[in-house]
């Protein structure tokens, strides 16, 4: 909150442009692939972070919404049940609707129970895809038969790292801008108030479950968007997109980046992917690395990088006349 209102769009624009020219600077296709994945994960992490920021709730199962989005696109493209445009919309709206309904049922519970159930729901979808082999080949995964043109763009645009990076990057920037607007809207203020003191907000006369369920639905939609981009880029989906190590990865990014700022989780995602690149040969033990990092970061860096940065900026601002 310390960065002034006027500054945020300018900084965001600068970062957006910087990102836009990145593909022309980066020669290595491998690095671009990694960066594209990083941006997709940054979107997922932003969804997780938004939930923490506005609801004070931690989801251990955002892979569920990510994977649901990914599978809906892959399955509807493969079985040709609807035009791709509809499929993309459904892939984002269906997880959001699920989260909304689920939220209405489980948001009345204490935060601990909510967190348990987010994990349970995501893991149940994982088991479902694993066991229902006729649906999506279970463990082996499914290749999405995507049409040659999607929303007026060639499929190749989505599957080559150079162009896909730009698409994902634009999505991320739009998303952060939208989240920023939402956070500063009356709805954002209301949900923050509920997060701080749910009982008091209720006594003042606000209905408190529905706004929180809406926040949950928005954050699920963001995760689903990331899942959709994932399928478009890779053209192949395995149950791993629903597995808890992905939920863990999203949490690690959100915690590294810090959730007090809307852009924190995205920053965390970028940092985490640089770290992943450095981990190199160790990636065989990726889940353990995610888990270990989660433990270390949670304990040592509770504010996250963005929290530390805003704290430093605040101090600088306080010193300046």
């Amino acid at each position: 909150m310390s960065i002034k209102r006027g500054v945020f769009p300018i900084v965001l624009l600068a970062i957006a442009i910087a990102g836009g020219v990145l593909p022309t600077l980066v020669g290595s296709a491998l690095l671009l692939t990694l960066l594209t994945q990083a941006v997709i994960n940054a979107i997922l992490a932003s969804g997780v972070g938004f939930l923490v920021r506005q609801n004070g709730l931690v989801s251990f199962g955002h892979a569920g919404f990510f994977g649901l989005g990914a599978y809906i696109v892959a399955l509807s493209a493969t079985y040709h049940v609807m035009p791709i445009g509809f499929a993309l919309a459904l892939a984002i709206l269906a997880p959001a609707l699920l989260a909304l309904l689920l939220g209405l049922a489980i948001l009345r519970l204490v935060g601990v129970a909510f967190s348990m159930l987010t994990l349970a729901v995501a893991q149940a979808f994982y088991e479902l895809v694993l066991h229902w082999r006729e649906l999506a080949n279970g463990d082996d995964g499914i290749a999405a038969e995507l049409p040659p043109r999607i929303l007026g763009l060639d499929l190749a645009m989505f599957q080559q790292p150079g162009s896909m990076f730009l698409i994902c990057w634009a999505m991320l920037i739009l998303l952060l801008f939208g989240l920023r607007l939402l956070v500063e809207s009356p709805f954002g203020t209301l949900t923050l108030a509920i997060r701080e003191n749910e009982e008091r907000a209720r006594f003042i006369g606000f209905e408190t479950i529905v706004p929180r369920a809406i926040v949950y639905a928005i954050s699920a939609a963001i995760a689903a968007l990331a899942g959709v981009l994932f399928t478009l880029y890779n053209g192949f989906v395995t149950p791993n997109v629903l597995y808890w190590s992905l939920s863990g990865e999203a949490l690690v990014m959100a915690v590294i980046g810090g959730t007090r700022a809307v852009w924190g989780p995205a920053l965390g995602a970028v940092i985490f992917f640089l770290f992943k690149d450095a981990a190199g040969d160790l990636t065989e033990h990726w889940p353990a690395i995610i888990g270990g990092t989660l433990i270390v970061v949670t304990v040592l860096l509770p504010r996250g990088v963005s929290g530390t940065i805003t704290m430093l900026l605040e101090r600088l601002g306080a010193r300046a006349p």
Binding site: V58, V112, A288
Partner: peptide, 15 residues
């Protein structure tokens, strides 16, 4: 915080 840590532990133990 504790839940995040035990979740991290879950991933480490599985690996």
């Amino acid at each position: 915080v504790t839940m995040l840590v035990t979740f991290g532990l879950l991933l480490v133990l599985e690996d």
